[in-house]
């Protein structure tokens, strides 16, 4: 038998979704292949890497990072500017943790002000993440989406519980992009997209967040869910699953034993910051290599590594 490359062409195509405005706007998706399979066809837009910042000072972050950001981290707008100038990620993710009812329980109005200041301070596209409390997020996003109208932000996230208000505010009223969050299940992901569609949000305005965990913590479910979603989108041309995927890696990776144990807890393990980076790099690479179109990381070194990595496959 003579050698013949095995080429797999797909009918389906992942939607192209733009986030941000102007020169620095980014496009996610657009591919007709699995991640990095450029021997099969058009791999679309390269994967995008974002940096996480928070609306409250990140007390529990590793010391090295706090030192790196210094006083900038005390003011979200300055922090964002610092990130844009010094790190130049593809986008910034502002996490509105201060709104968490179990923490500072900041009002939607306060959050709106912060988000507006941040978006005005930068050229980069902005992804805005809530608290994970569905009820509170609905209220917060209602105000924030209005305050950042015109900036084409991506909101993380609309869930089964709050998609009506988040979808209406982000996707319909103020022309943003809607992150659709489900919990590691292809059918739930599909269902939420359909519900958003019925609400009037266009498929082209949706980015999926299909769940996240750190490598070693049920991560195989994530791998298989993304595999299945991509095969359905590409091979079966399932329109209800052709949205790009974003995965907030840093939301999970910095909260597991491997990254929170201090050197005194585990002397053999070495520097905690370094473990944080490797956990972030492993998780981010893994989810990108099964199909995520964008990931959010926390550490500048993770950003640098992931950008270089993605570049090597462009």
């Amino acid at each position: 038998m003579a050698f013949k490359m095995s080429v797999q062409e797909y009918k389906g195509k992942i939607n192209e979704v733009e986030i941000g405005k102007g020169e620095k706007a980014i496009k996610l998706g657009g591919q007709q292949t699995l991640a990095f399979y450029d021997f099969d066809g058009d791999t679309g837009n390269s994967q995008k890497i974002g940096i996480e910042i928070t609306d409250v000072y990140p007390e529990e972050w590793v010391t090295g990072l706090k030192e790196f950001y210094g006083d900038a981290a005390k003011n979200p707008a300055e922090w964002a500017k610092f990130v844009e100038e010094k790190l130049n990620p593809d986008f910034i993710c502002l996490r509105l943790q201060g709104a968490d009812p179990n923490e500072l329980d900041k009002s939607p109005e306060e959050c709106a002000e912060v988000a507006k200041a941040v978006v005005e301070a930068i050229q980069l596209p902005l992804v805005i993440a809530g608290t994970g409390n569905h009820e509170k997020d609905a209220k917060v996003f209602e105000k924030v989406t209005a305050a950042v109208e015109g900036y084409n932000c991506l909101f993380l996230a609309a869930t089964e519980e709050n998609y009506k208000s988040v979808g209406a505010a982000a996707g319909l009223a103020y022309g943003h992009k809607v992150g659709a969050e489900s919990s590691v299940d292809i059918n739930l992901a599909k269902q939420l997209n359909v519900l958003l569609d019925q609400l009037g949000v266009k498929y082209e305005d949706i980015v999926m967040h299909i769940g996240c965990s750190a490598a070693g913590y049920g991560f195989e479910y994530l791998v298989s869910t993304v595999d299945r979603i991509r095969l359905a989108a590409l091979a079966q041309n399932d329109k209800t699953l052709q949205m790009p995927i974003i995965t907030p890696v840093s939301f999970e990776t910095w909260g597991v034993k491997e990254t929170i144990a201090e050197e005194s807890d585990a002397p053999d393990w070495g520097d905690r910051e370094e473990r944080g980076i490797t956990m972030e790099v492993t998780t981010a690479t893994s989810i990108l290599s099964v199909g995520a179109d964008a990931v959010i990381v926390r550490h500048p070194k993770s950003l640098e590594t992931m950008k270089d990595f993605v570049c090597q496959f462009a």
Binding site: W269, T282, T283
Partner: peptide
């Protein structure tokens, strides 16, 4: 070293569990 091993071995362990 542990910084490399912890995430890599954990990833492998997850991926090779039988669904």
């Amino acid at each position: 070293d542990y910084a490399k091993a912890l995430p890599l071995f954990a990833l492998r362990q997850n991926v090779y569990t039988d669904p």
